[in-house]
Design a protein around this nucleic acid. Structure first.
Length: 418
DNA sequence: TGACGTCAAGATCCG
DNA sequence: CGGATCTTGACGTCA
C-alpha cells in the first residue's frame, strides 16, 4: 500500500507552481514559468523521496496553458531533458505518479469544440507522463462529465468519444465516481463496456451513492475487478467532509481516527490511497506513520519538531502532553500523538499563546540578531499585543530572519504555514 | 447570469 | 515602498 497526496505541498521550500494570465502568456514568460515549475516538481519529488511518500499526483498546472493554443512554445522539446531527469528520479525511487484533469475537461460534452479541447487536454497529460518515461501504472483520472438532461445519451457520448482516443491515452485513463452526476454504479457500468479501471472516491460515494445497501468497501471490491496487471495496484481516492463548509468540501486535515476506521475496514490492503485534503503532504505523512506496524518513534520525534511551535501557539496544554507522550522511546503512540495535534489545532489562537510561541522561535535569534532587529521584533510584538499588527506580520518577520540567518530547521517548520 | 472549485496573478488599499 | 486584502481569471455545466 502506498499513500499519497495531490499536486501541492505545505511547508516545503521552493515547490510553488506559477502561472500567468492569457494576456501575459508570451514565449519568454512561459519559458520562465515552466522552468520554475519543473524545478518545483523536482523539489517535490526530492521531498517525497526523503519522506518515503510513494504516491503523488502531478499538478495539471505544471505547464501553463499546456493544452491550449495560447502556449505556442514547443515545451515538450525544449524541456525534454529536464523531464527525463525528473522521470529518472521518480522511477529510481519507485514513486507512482498520476495526473487528474479538472472538472472542466469534459469528454462527453455535446459541443464538439469542448470535446476537442478535452482530447487536447488528455493528450497534454499523456505527453507529460510520457516525457517522464512512466509506465502505464501512471494514470490520468477522469470524470464522466455532464448530464445534459439525457443521462443515457450522455453516457453513450462518453463511450463513443473515448473510443476516438489513441491507445497511448486510453491505456492511462481511469474513471472516477463524482459527487453530482455519475455514481459508482454508473461508472462501473461504463467501465464494463470500455474496459477502463475504476477509482472509488469515498466522499463522492457518500454524497452521491448508488444505493443504500452497499458500503464503500463493497464498491472497492467491485472496482478491483476492473484493474489489470498493467494498470498496477488498485487506486482509490480518500477524503473527509469539511464540517464547516458545504457538502463535498475537503477537510483541512485527514482526521486520523476516521482514516484508521476506513483503513481497518478495507477488505485487503493492496491498495494505493490518494488523499484529497488541504494540508496535503502533512496528512500523507500522518497516515503513513499511522499504519506503520513497526515502532517509528523517531518519525514522531521528527514530526514533533515541525509541529511543536504550532501546537504551542494553539494549546500549551497539548504541547505539554505530547512532550510527556514522546518520553517513552519504547512505545509508538502514533494515534494519540496525531489526535492531540488535531485537537490542539482546532483551538482558536489566544494572543498570549501566540506571543509565547513567537518568543520560542525568537529564542533562535536573540543572541545573533542585530540590535535593530531586536528592537524591531520587540516593538512588533508589543504592537501585536495592542492589536496594531497581525500575527501573520510577526510570522513573516520571523520567517525572513530565519532565511537571513539560515536557520534551516525553522524554515520548513509548520509554524509558518498555517 | 451567477455559482461552483481552485489556485495564483493582478489590483488596490493602507500606513 | 512593502504588506495586507480584495478581485479576477481560466475552465464548462447547471439552475
Amino acid at each position: 500500500m502506498s499513500i499519497g497526496y495531490a499536486c501541492l505541498t505545505m511547508g516545503v521550500l521552493n515547490t510553488q507552481f506559477k502561472t500567468c494570465r492569457k494576456e501575459n502568456a508570451t514565449d519568454e514568460n512561459l519559458y520562465k514559468l515552466i522552468e520554475n515549475n519543473l524545478n518545483s516538481l523536482e523539489n517535490i519529488i526530492d521531498y517525497n523521496i526523503k519522506n518515503n511518500i510513494k504516491l503523488f499526483r502531478i499538478s495539471s498546472d505544471l505547464i501553463p496553458f499546456g493544452s491550449s493554443e495560447i502556449n505556442k512554445l514547443p515545451w515538450h522539446i525544449i524541456f525534454k531533458e529536464r523531464f527525463k531527469k525528473i522521470g529518472e528520479k521518480i522511477k529510481k525511487s519507485n514513486i507512482r505518479v498520476s495526473m487528474h484533469p479538472g472538472q472542466y475537461t469534459v469528454l462527453n460534452s455535446p459541443k464538439p469544440e469542448v470535446v476537442e479541447k478535452a482530447i487536447k487536454d488528455l493528450e497534454y497529460h499523456t505527453i507529460v507522463l510520457d516525457l517522464l518515461d512512466t509506465n502505464t501504472k501512471s494514470k490520468i483520472i477522469l470524470h464522466i462529465g455532464g448530464i445534459y438532461n439525457e443521462k443515457n445519451k450522455s453516457i453513450k457520448r462518453f463511450i463513443e468519444n473515448y473510443r476516438l482516443l489513441n491507445n497511448q491515452i486510453k491505456e492511462r485513463i481511469l474513471i472516477e465516481n463524482d459527487e453530482k452526476f455519475y455514481n459508482i454504479c454508473d461508472v462501473l457500468s461504463i467501465s464494463e463496456k470500455l474496459d477502463i479501471p475504476v477509482v472509488v472516491d469515498n466522499l463522492h460515494n457518500k454524497i452521491n451513492p448508488c444505493n443504500n445497501k452497499n458500503d464503500v468497501y463493497y464498491w472497492i471490491k467491485e472496482a478491483n475487478k476492473t484493474w489489470k496487471n498493467e494498470d498496477g495496484t488498485q487506486k482509490v481516492h480518500y477524503s473527509q467532509q469539511n464540517p464547516s463548509l458545504k457538502t463535498g468540501a475537503h477537510s483541512e486535515t485527514i482526521y486520523i481516527k476516521d482514516f484508521m476506521e476506513y483503513y481497518n475496514y478495507l477488505p485487503y490492503k493492496d491498495i494505493d490511497i490518494m488523499l484529497e485534503v488541504k494540508d496535503k503532504n502533512l496528512s500523507a505523512i500522518k497516515c503513513i506513520n499511522s499504519i506503520s506496524i513497526e515502532n517509528k518513534i523517531f518519525a514522531l520525534e521528527k514530526e514533533w519538531a515541525k509541529y511543536k511551535y504550532k501546537v504551542l501557539e494553539t494549546s500549551p496544554a497539548s504541547y505539554k502532553k505530547i512532550r510527556e507522550l514522546l518520553k517513552d522511546k519504547s512505545g509508538y503512540p502514533v494515534l494519540e500523538f496525531y489526535t492531540l495535534i488535531e485537537d490542539a489545532l482546532k483551538n482558536k489562537i489566544i494572543k498570549g499563546n501566540a506571543v509565547n510561541a513567537a518568543l520560542h522561535i525568537w529564542g533562535y535569534f536573540k543572541d545573533i540578531a542585530s540590535q535593530k532587529e531586536k528592537e524591531n521584533f520587540l516593538k512588533k510584538l508589543r504592537q501585536f499585543e495592542n492589536n496594531n499588527v497581525s500575527l501573520k506580520n510577526i510570522k513573516t518577520f520571523l520567517f525572513n530572519i530565519s532565511i537571513k540567518y539560515k536557520v534551516k530547521y525553522l524554515l520548513e517548520n509548520y509554524y509558518f504555514y498555517f
